[in-house]
């Protein structure tokens, strides 16, 4: 909470509850670190659960307009608004390593390729989750063909394209409705990361958890932590330096680690429950890659029409991710 002594009292607003890992493991530790590094001159009060008003899609406007000083949000909540960084949602751009993908996002922000999306805010971090795995109620999935005709819940806008490309039927529904839909087989499965298993009790509603070898996933979701530009501008240089230090590459990598770690309890819970954890490998996984390439092309076509060089973005993102993945080995 804020202190009387601080020179700058900031508000950090986000959508998840005060017990969520994003709040306890990522946001709160970060604000504490900034407060400490500032010697108590900056105070940040965190407001979880949209308690400062609006719905999650409004978070972006709130940080732009200075309604709050910091937000953490999902870029996909405002489709159309971050057209360049959507490249990281695409299948087989991000594959299996959130740290590498976060580092690649850092590169593309620094070299200007996705900077236009974020011109109105001071970016503290961009990051992804571990990526979408497949969860099915009663059908084991070993090949692309196994997915044909299944009804699957859409994770993101491009996630719907992924499901179509795999020959399945995309079903759009709000997340809170997913458990009910799975339990009554309104949908046959969903594309979500392991980390969602515990809060929605997905392990009790499905029998199979499916991913590619080496934790390969099928697309992901991108997030950002952003600061209002004026809130940053009004800081003296030494405090700006505190923010910059805590918005650097180390922090982006640390977030990657936090989200990698957040996956483990989820899949463990499913396996302990008696679910089968299927890992698709080798040639079968290659078939997924081939089947999903048209999704990438569809996206390139769409953004090219808006005057964005989609092809270059895909190439740059893949290259940077490959480079950082190797470093991490």
């Amino acid at each position: 909470s804020t202190s009387m002594a601080a020179e700058f009292n900031f508000k950090f607003h986000h959508l998840l509850g005060p017990k969520s890992p994003a709040h306890t493991k990522m946001i709160v530790p970060w604000t504490e670190r900034v407060m400490k590094d500032s010697g108590g001159r900056i105070a940040i009060e965190v407001f979880p659960s949209m308690s400062l008003g609006g719905k999650p899609p409004q978070l972006v406007n709130q940080v732009n307009d200075g309604v709050v000083d910091f937000v953490w949000t999902v870029l996909g909540y405002t489709p159309g608004r971050f057209p360049r960084s959507e490249v990281f949602d695409l299948p087989f751009v991000h594959t299996n390593n959130p740290i590498a993908t976060n580092m690649a996002m850092y590169d593309l922000l620094q070299n200007g390729m996705i900077a236009e999306d974020f011109k109105d805010v001071k970016v503290i971090a961009l990051h992804v989750n571990a990526g979408q795995a497949i969860h099915t109620v009663d059908k084991p999935i070993h090949t692309v063909e196994d997915l044909k005709g299944l009804k699957l819940r859409i994770p993101t806008r491009t996630g719907g394209w992924i499901i179509e490309a795999l020959g399945a039927n995309p079903v759009a529904m709000p997340v809170p409705e997913l458990p009910q839909a799975l339990s009554k087989k309104v949908v046959d499965g969903a594309f979500i990361p392991w980390e969602i298993i515990p809060p929605l009790k997905i392990h009790e509603l499905t029998k199979y958890q499916i991913e590619g070898e080496n934790n390969t996933r099928f697309g992901t979701t991108t997030f950002m932590i952003a600061m209002n530009k004026d809130s940053y501008a009004k800081l003296p240089d030494d405090l700006k330096a505190v923010i910059d230090k805590n918005a650097g590459l180390d922090w982006w990598k640390e977030i990657g680690q936090i989200w990698t770690d957040s996956e483990k309890p989820g899949i463990k819970m499913a396996v302990d429950h008696g679910n089968e954890h299927i890992v698709i490998a080798g040639a079968e996984l290659e078939k997924f890659r081939t089947a999903l390439e048209p999704v990438v092309n569809r996206w390139v076509e769409e953004v090219t029409a808006k005057g964005i060089d989609g092809k270059a973005l895909v190439a740059a993102a893949r290259e940077a991710i490959a480079k950082h993945s190797k470093e991490g080995m």
Partner: peptide, 14 residues
């Protein structure tokens, strides 16, 4: 005007 300048659309049918 904000929504229009940011090209904000709905997720599924745009």
């Amino acid at each position: 005007l904000d929504l229009r300048s940011y090209n904000e659309v709905t997720g599924i049918i745009g």
